[in-house]
Amino acid sequence: MAKIRSSEITPEEVYLNRRKFMKGLGAIAAVGMVSPSSVLPKNFGKEEELTSFKSITHYNNFYEFSTDKEEVAELSGALTTSPWDVEVTGLVEKPAKFSVDDLKSKYAQEERVYRLRCVEGWSMVIPWTGFPVASLLKDAQPTSKAKFMKMTTLMRPSEMKGQKNRWYDWPYVEGLRLDEAMNDLALFATGLYGKDLPNQNGAPIRLVVPWKYGFKSIKSIVKIELVEQMPTSLWMKAAPAEYGFYSNVNPNVSHPRWSQKSERRIGEFRRRKTLMFNGYEEEVSSLYSGMDLKKYF
């Protein structure tokens, strides 16, 4: 496993101190000063400890580089992330192509601390920076026909060695229903721990949908397409019985391999109970009212 230099660790401490400082400020100034999105949902009781920068950046499922989580950090160094264009296309009034820098200056960057629950039964707490998916969609103006948002990862086997593994149908594709994409929690992340997104975490721009299993949060996006039909994701193709389109975190829908009733938070010893929608029930459950989530898993 690659060691990280002490110079890379420093920002985490600076970052944590800054957070403490800001929290103090918030308490002194007024409750309304703190953006509600940066506060964890109340139903967890206490503020959760952030997963370490080292763990977040050295334990990655990013099959475009390797199926070995420990190898991704090093192998992803080969990826060129600048220049990088994101195409917004399909059933929209205003199709466009943006550089990531454009997007960063066009949309105010917010901090969001989210839990991330991997389908493999482990979880983290990650401080992202980014902007709401809804902001971009509102500007693109989906037509009345648009029902889903389909996203595609870069296809570049020369730099993404894992794409030479023919077992999977590259490039990586993921999708959301339009109302899911418009939900406040859905974020396009461009950074974590207050710095630019590391390559292994999906640089330069990725999706974060914290109420769904981690694989739904597609990395290194080059294309956002509004479509009428439900897109088929890479995982739906690879194992349709195991990975559905919705893939909401749900302790009541079992998976043939990993426990979905419990999870191990990285850095902790004992398992914890997995919460419905990863604890974001209040924010997202209305999206699925009347749906049989065991059928639409």
Partner: peptide, 20 residues
């Protein structure tokens, strides 16, 4: 002992749920 920390209820559920 480590993964399920002798949580027999959870182990029992896991065995029933997962043939592996």
């Amino acid at each position: 002992g480590l993964d399920y920390f002798f949580d027999w209820e959870l182990i029992y559920e896991t065995i029933l749920e997962k043939p592996y």
